[in-house]
Amino acid sequence: MGVEIMDRKIRVLAALPGIDSHDKGMVVICNALREAGVEVIYLGKFNMPEKIVRSAIEEDVDVIALSYLSDHLYMVFFPKVVELLKQNKADDICVVVGGRIADEHLNELKARGISGFFTQGAPLKDIVNHIIERANSRKKD
């Protein structure tokens, strides 16, 4: 599976939404993605969905990768990102999430086209492969 789509590298925007500051996992994933040849734009901490979506569109990314490890506010932020992508007719950008996500929320998030749900113990290659797979599936759409 290639890391290039139509002669350019896969581009991923990675961010922590809200004011959660557990960024270790996301930093590790960004570095693993870069090692796999993916271009990563890392927004860091403290991002509201509006900024995430605006940046994703400006940077012309294939995938938005979000991590959240604090409380249940991801149930506000993740759907909001999907909704804003739709509003901006950019819902071909895939949303992949990870962190600490409660089982009872999985179905609702999946129904919105969100995937991933990687949690503590997920091997890096699974995460990287999943992101590349989703980026490639976008090519076919």
Partner: peptide, 8 residues
């Protein structure tokens, strides 16, 4: 930006 976070 603090909405939902206070005392949590």
């Amino acid at each position: 930006i603090a909405e939902g976070y206070s005392g949590v």
